[in-house]
Structures are given as C-alpha cells and as structure tokens.
Design a protein around this nucleic acid. Sequence first.
RNA 1: GCGAAAGUGGCGGAAUUGGUAGACGCGCUGGCCUUAGGAGCCAGUGGGGCAACCCGUAAGAGUUCGAGUCUCUUCUUUCGCACCA
Length: 831
Amino acid sequence: MGHVRNYTIGDVLARFMRMQGLNVLQPMGWDAFGLPAENAAIANGVPPARWTRENIAYMKRQLQALGFALDWGRELATCDPQYYRWNQWLFLRMLERGIAYKKTGVVNWDPVDQTVLANEQVIDGRGWRTGALIEKREIPMYYLRITAYAEELLAALDGLTDWPERVRTMQANWIGRSEGCEVVFPYSDDTIATLGATAASAAGALSVFTTRADTLFGVTFAAISAEHPLAQAAASRDPQLLDFVEECRRGSTMEAAVATMEKRGMRTGLHVRHPLTGEPIEVWVANYVLMSYGSGAVMGVPAHDERDFEFAHRHGIALRTVIRPSGAEWDEVGPEWQGLYAEAGVTVNSGEFSGLSSAEAVTAICRALEQRGLGQPRVQWRLRDWGISRQRYWGCPIPLIHCPSCGEVPVPDAQLPVRLPEDLVPDGSGNPLAKSEAFLHCACPRCGQNARRETDTMDTFVDSSWYFLRFACTDQDSRPVDERAAYWLPVDQYIGGIEHAILHLLYSRFWTRVMRDMQLISLDEPFRRLLTQGMVLNQIYYRQAATGRPVYFNPADVETRVDGTGKRIGAVLVSDGLPVEHGGLGTMSKSKNNGVDPQSLVQKYGADTARLFVMFASPPEQTLEWSDEGVQGQFRFLRRLWKAVYDHVHAGPKPEPLTSAVLSGLGEAAADLRRQAHQTVVRVTDDIARRRVFNTAIAAVMELLNAVGRFEVPGAGARAVRQEALELAVLCLSPMVPHICHELWFALGHERALIEEPWPRPDPAALVQPTVELVVQVNGKLRGRVQVSALADEAAARAAALADPDVRRFVGNVEPRRVIYVPGKLVNIVV
RNA sequence: GCGAAAGUGGCGGAAUUGGUAGACGCGCUGGCCUUAGGAGCCAGUGGGGCAACCCGUAAGAGUUCGAGUCUCUUCUUUCGCACCA
C-alpha cells in the first residue's frame, strides 16, 4: 500500500500539472537488486532473478489497474544488464578519478555460516539463521569519496528551499560539520619503552579531535577505540586487555547498538603527556569510542562531558572542574551529573588560560597548542566515505579482475557489462558467485593469464543514485545519459518515504555531482522539489499461541466491537467469534500479517475508490491509517457524486452557458452556490499546486457536492448554475478520480474527453462577497457575530460590534481600553 | 545513546500568516423508507450545566488584547543511525 500511496500522489500531481498545460513525464522503474530477493530465494530455492521478474510483472499489472498515467516506454529495472552496465562504467570512471578507492572496512561476521551479514540480519547481536554471536571483522572494500563533497553537499542544502525543512536539518546533522581543534598527546617515555619498535610507537603521539579545547585542563584520561592501533599494541602484551579487546569485537557494527551499550573500559597501562602541562595521562580502551569517527580516540573531561563523567564515575577516575558558569549557578561539579556542567562558561584551574570565556579559551588554547606543534584548528566531519562493496550475489558486479601478475585490473569498457549469472540460488552460506567457476574464471585483460573476477557486488543504493537521469534516455546505449537529460532534469517533483530522508537522498545528491564533474550532465541537485510521504499503518491483531509466539491475524478477518457511543471495546476473529488481542498500529508487514493487497481493493471498489481513500485519509507527509470503513465512505461519496450528476442530467436538457444577463438575474441562493463552486476551485488549486495536500482539496469538493444537494431552486438560471457547479466538482476531482470523472464529463454533455480539458479558472465576479461576518470578542472571548459590508472600515466595524446586544452585555457602559480590528475576521474589545 | 518529527472528539483528520477549535469523512444514537439490509434519506453527536454560561488541543510554565499555532521543561509515539531499501 505504501507504493499505491506514493504513486497516487505522483499521478495526481502529474494529471494536475498536465491540465495546467505542462509537459509531464511520469516514468516507472524497478529497484530490483537486493536482500529481499535473496531471502526469497533462500526460502523457496528459486533463483532471485525469477522471483524478481515475477514480482515486477505482478506489480506492473497492479499499477496499470490503478490507472496511473505512466510512460511505460521508459520502463527500466536495475537488474537489467542494459542498466547496470552503466553502474559499472561509472564506477570505473570514479576509480580513474580517485573518487572510488579501496581500504578496509568493518563488517558483521557470522562465524558459523562463515558469511558477512547485513545489519538487518543481526538480531540482538546474533546471526538471524545460526543464532551465533556476531563478530566485527575487517575486510578490504571499495569506497566512494563522498567526504570530498561534504562542504558542497552541506552548503547546497540552503538552496533546496522546496525540500521539507526537517529533511534538510537531518542531512545537515548527518554531514555534521564541527569546528574544533586537533590536540596531540605525546606518548610518555614509559609508553614508548613498552611499545618498543611497533607501528603504534612510530606514531609517537595520540591525536584527538575536540570542539571543547576550553576544557583541555580538565582532561583526566584518554580513551581509545578497541580497534585503535595503540589498543592492539597494548593488548599484545596484556592477556586481560586482549580479552577485553576481543570482547569489544563481539556484537554488531550498528551505531545504535554501540551507543546504547553499557559503557565499559579497561586500562592499557600506557600513558600520554598533557600537551600543555606535561602531566601523565592514563590511556583507556573504551567500547563507546568509535574508530570510524575522528581519529578513534577522545580526550576524557569527566567534569564537562556526560559520557566521560559516567565513564570516570564507573572506573574511579578523578574529575577536575575547569569551567564555571558566568552566572555562578554552581561552583564545583557535584556527584550527580547536570546538563549545565557541559555548557560554556568561564575557565578556572587552567593555568594562564584561567578567567577566559569558553570561546576565548578555545582560541587561546588552540593557538598555544599550535605554537608548541601539538595541535591546530581543524574542521571535523561526521560524514564518512560510502562503502559500496557487498559480499552478496543479487547485485551489480564490481567490474574488476584480480590477476596474479598484474594485480587489480579494471574490466575494459568494451567488455562491459560484467553480467551477473541469473541461475544461481543462494543458500545463506556466503556469496554463490565465489563458488561459481563460470563466473570466477577469466583472462586478465592486461596479460591474458588466468585471473579471477571480483565477486563483491555493489550496494543497491548505487542503483538508485542516478536512475532518474536514465529515464530521460533509456534507449541510449553508448553513454549512461545524453543531452535529453538537460530537458527533463532536475526532477521537478520527487516523492519518497521519509525513511529515505538521509541515505538515498544524500547519495543521489553526491552521485549527481560526480556525474556533473565528469561533464556528463550539467546540474548540481537532482531533485528540485521533494515530498516525503508518511508510512501506511494498519491495526495489528494477534493471539498468544501455546508456544509463546504470537499468531497474527489480518485485520480484514477481525471484527471490532464498539459500545453505544462508538468507543472500541474489543475485537473478535470473524471465523470463530473468539476475542483477539490488539497490538496497536504498525507499518504493514508480512510478519505482522496486517498488509492489504491493492489488487483486492481494486476488485471490490475499483481503482478510483482506492486512489481517493489514500489521498483523503491523511495529508501526504503524515502516516496513513488503513480503515475499511474509510474506504467504504469514499465509495459512498463517489456513488453520491454519480447520482447527483445523473439526477441533474435526467432533469432536463443541457443548459445554455451562463450569460451576463442570466448572472445578473440570479437569486441569492444561486449566487451563493456559484460563489462556493468558484471558491472550491480556488481552494483545490491552492491545495494541490502550493500546499501539496489533497485531503482538504477532496473535503472542499465534498462540501460543494453537499451544497448542490441542498440547492433546490427551480428555473433555467438555477439549472445552469447547478450544471456549472457539477462541472467544476468533476474537474477538480479528476486528478484523484480519473475514471469516474471521465465518464461523468461526457454525461454532463461534453464531446471532448476530460483528459484534454484545461484546469478550471475561477471567475472573479463569482467570488465577490457583499457582506462578511465578523467575530466579536470581549477580552479575547467570543461573545458575538456581526454582519458588515465587505468594505467596512475600522470605525464601522467597531460601531457594529459595540451595537451587538450580546457584546454590550459584556462590555457594559465602560469605555473600551483598546479595540483590535482584524479586517474581514474579528473585532476584539478589551475592557 | 544521538539526530529529526509528531501528539487536537469514540476514530482519521481540519484550523494555510498568532485571530470563530473540531471543516470533511468514519463510527455511534434516534427517526423515515424497505419483505430484507454491510442499501438510501433526515436529524443529532467534545465534556459539564435547566439556563446564562463554564471547561477543553499530551502535562506543566511563559510571551500576547488574543495561543492548537510562538518560547522553555517534561512525558509518549514514530522515523533515521551508514550492509533493509
């Protein structure tokens, strides 16, 4: 249903824009590689290719049944060699430019299946199939240098004014620019002696990054990640520390898991020297320090950092107050952590740097470090380079060949694509490509010797990072994109789930820039306007089985029980009439058995009802709660609309168009209906074009139809007004309800199909309102309403308000202290 | 843990720029029609009160003539956290 919602929003906008006279391209493609196909293959023993193509065929029928105005001539699937050859081609160009490079990365390793697992396949630190404790393992991988674009990706967010604010904020925080200071803590003599001639000792110093150089004199320990070379060196001499470092290797690589873990640490026995005081500082290994951020080491300031405070508390490490608040709310950091301790203030106990504001101290200390050669100002990014290697089968092969003599050799362009064999069936025990002799063996393109193909495939985010460009020229077979991209791109309206707010959208922004720098396209940003749609939710019902595992029931098979006021009091399974438990609302999923098949919905109510419901139930950016009654409500509305049109049509011949003579003779009721009809056009146009909300647009048409139902004035003029109101209702609804509106448009006596009609323009004369109702407040409380001329000035409005008997009761005989007049809205009398 | 949002009747939601809280729809109650209703039509429906009125937008404070809307604190829920896509 998430897809139905996504594409209905897109289709409504496409049809609306087309009626506005724009040339609209609405394409469709299939993001077809990835884990779900492999999982299905493991479960059913069928090659992922077959499962994928069957799914595409099924979904395509669904999308066609829903009447989406898609250009199927541009259909593409990311698992087609015609598409992924360009992933490979672009990857090779990135390799040439140094955008793609190789380094080691940490992955989840299942020691039983001897395979790399995705984060999703790690449940509570254990492998999903084996239940074995997962370990971190370092393997060589290919990375894309997205950090080289960090500055630009951040700065350009300001220009994305038609993106939701929250997405821009999330991306900015994700890129995470922080200005601070690199601080170098030289190793103590005893540490250098202990390390001997190792790689770690060659570094000679521990480098850390901090945004709080003003707290440097409060450093009482240093903490390094278990993967830090210094930790490795120390562990090789200390069996207990080695155990701890090994223990830190257990568990998944997920940052959320690392961050919520109990903070633990162990002494290394090594020391560094404070860069300004020379004081020895003990080095600890801590499980909360991430090797992937900064240098994998932090300075510990327990008095002014919450995590350091907690860590020091647990391990009996001393604490030194070096910042006091300027307002003197507290003096010394106490035994209980308070958020205030981390705030900026005035330095104390900091030698010659005491008495400075935090900001001054940051600058002064940084400068002092720089003079001693023990530090410098630095900008640190949270963003890391994008690791694209996957040790999996169902993805785009990385086009490299490993030759015993030449080393790593790129596949020549003429040999692209490196085709993925489509007949393999994964079994969960590693990448089947690595076991396929036919795939593996090849000749080295340089020396012709026997060589081995790279078996890693690309992250599926690669596939989705540029597909939108390809839609402009799916038939182009000598380049990934051609000049037609300049006409269609950037995407004027992109629609996607909020779950894509960071990764997919950031990767696409990056990839677009890389292609720009290769002179393949000439745009910076891929998506001009972004709509992030909310999730589709449904009720969850279950019973606790004897095994203790819940058994889920589809909400369609469950009947809810309500009391006399309509309040829910329980639910029973229709088949046996016995109660089921309610598990709240959740996203539609197989595991919770709360999905709704769009196909059955279309069969029962038709495509228009399905489309109307998903657009009416909530605004596009919010979650949408599935409701069978709600669907029936929309079905009912469409039938009422149908009946209203045909009742009108059967009551007489098609009226002549409204002439000025007819208009001037209209009674008040007819003028009111006409005003409402044209106001509906104004509201619907604004809702779709500017606000991108559809539920209120539909509500406006419902109100108009209710008004038509109440309108019982006889006569030719009134009949013409009713005809006009029904025509406008049908036009306004047509982007949401294309099929029924198409039919009703002919019924209303038109010869040309509705799809060829332009979007209606409201008649300014119809909108004119002779009088307006003003709300009258006394001291901010609603006390009355008065009708005044739409042209009334403040004095007239004030007089009318004070003349109202209800208002007079509250004002009494006192002279108002103040009167606030909001034209056309209200008068507030302050007494 | 960090980052981002959201919280309004029995339910989904409306209130667009600080200006009438509850549009529209669902559900429910009563009535009409019908052999029948998972059909249609009419009326009612935030809470309290005979009424005048009073209370009411997660909780608490603040700014303002006026706060669902702005500010702060707290609580709850949802999304993301780099190998689900």
